[in-house]
Every structure is written in structure tokens, then in C-alpha cells.
């Protein structure tokens, strides 16, 4: 829980700073794939490995995975149809047969209509989410954060002794 909260605070910090736009956007895109994939599957494991290995904002990935899991649940009927259409395509059957009998690949549960549909939809949407969220973050920083920082309340808050102490602590902590 502490780790999760730490990641969430890191996300808020990063969102309100001027850096890490790509990291957050990649986090959202990974969260999309994670939310659309079954919890215990090879692809989910791969995404987690990527989250650990690459500099992707984990908090953003977890928050968006939670959100996109609901979206995926709502879109189950659509995913089912998309997946069924793909799995029933005659031209792809030899490939699926080979994949079905390959080691490890069946662990992705690609042969399930919802998993296949949701997987394809999430892969198609991932670049859109990446670029879309990148733009939204920039817009957010330019409007919401800037306006908030120029508000009287913020200025009063930053003028307090407590904030100065916190600023010093933050600087020392790195």
C-alpha cells in the first residue's frame, strides 16, 4: 500500500513538474494494455516487466490500468465480437493453430474471444493514448498548474514558514 501511495504521489509530483511527460504518457499507454488484458496472463507479466525495466511512470500505469479495466469491462461485448471475428478468420487459422501449439504463447489466452478482442483494441489504442495523454499533460501544465501557481492562495501558501520548511526538506531529500 505504501508503495502504491508513493507511486501515486510521484505521479502527482511529476504531473505538476515540467519534466517526465513521456514517462507519464507511456505509463498511461501501458495502463491501457494492462487494464484490457486478463490479470493472470503472459502479456500482463510482460507489461509489468517493461514497467520495471524501462523508465515508465508506474503510478500512471497503475491508475490508468484501474480505470481502463472498468472501460474494458464495459466494452466486453464489443471485444467479444472483435475477438471472435479475428479468431474465426479462415486466413489466420494456420497461424493461430501454430500459436496454439507453441510453447508459452497459449499462456496469453489469445484463443479467447474477449482476450483477443481486448488485446487488439488496446494495442490499436495505445499509440493514441500515448500521444493524446502527452498533449493533455502539456495542456494541463500550461493552464491548470500555471493558473493554480499564480493564484493568491498558492502564493500565500508558499509564503508560509511550513512551506519553506517543506521546500528545504524536499531539496535536502532530493
Amino acid at each position: 500500500m505504501t508503495l502504491l501511495l508513493k507511486q501515486l504521489f510521484a505521479l502527482i509530483n511529476l504531473l505538476n513538474s515540467d519534466t517526465g511527460t513521456n514517462q507519464i504518457a507511456a505509463g498511461f499507454a501501458c495502463g491501457l494494455i494492462l487494464g484490457f488484458a486478463p490479470m493472470l496472463s503472459l502479456q500482463a507479466l510482460l507489461v509489468f516487466v517493461c514497467l520495471f525495466l524501462f523508465r515508465i511512470q508506474v503510478g500512471a500505469a497503475l491508475v490508468s490500468a484501474f480505470f481502463f479495466a472498468f472501460v474494458a469491462w464495459l466494452f466486453d461485448p464489443v471485444s467479444d465480437r472483435v475477438g471472435a471475428a479475428i479468431l474465426e478468420t479462415e486466413a489466420l487459422r494456420p497461424m493461430f493453430t501454430a500459436m496454439y501449439n507453441m510453447p508459452l504463447v497459449p499462456l496469453t489466452r489469445f484463443y479467447n474471444s474477449i482476450t483477443m478482442g481486448a488485446g487488439v483494441v488496446s494495442l490499436l489504442l495505445a499509440p493514441l493514448v500515448f500521444f493524446g495523454s502527452k498533449r493533455l499533460i502539456l495542456v494541463y501544465r500550461a493552464t491548470v498548474v500555471a493558473r493554480f501557481k499564480s493564484s493568491r492562495w498558492w502564493k500565500m501558501w508558499t509564503g508560509t514558514v511550513f512551506f519553506k520548511w517543506y521546500a528545504t526538506y524536499d531539496k535536502l531529500r532530493g
Binding site: P77, D80, E88, F96, T97, Y100, Y111, N112, S113
Partner: peptide, 14 residues
Amino acid sequence: APERRRGRNYAFGK
């Protein structure tokens, strides 16, 4: 049989 959150499993067995 299709079921919500379960989908349909296709068998491509040789």
C-alpha cells in the same frame, strides 16, 4: 457458451 467476462474459447488443436 459466451459468458460476460469469460468470452468464448476457441480450440485450434492439431
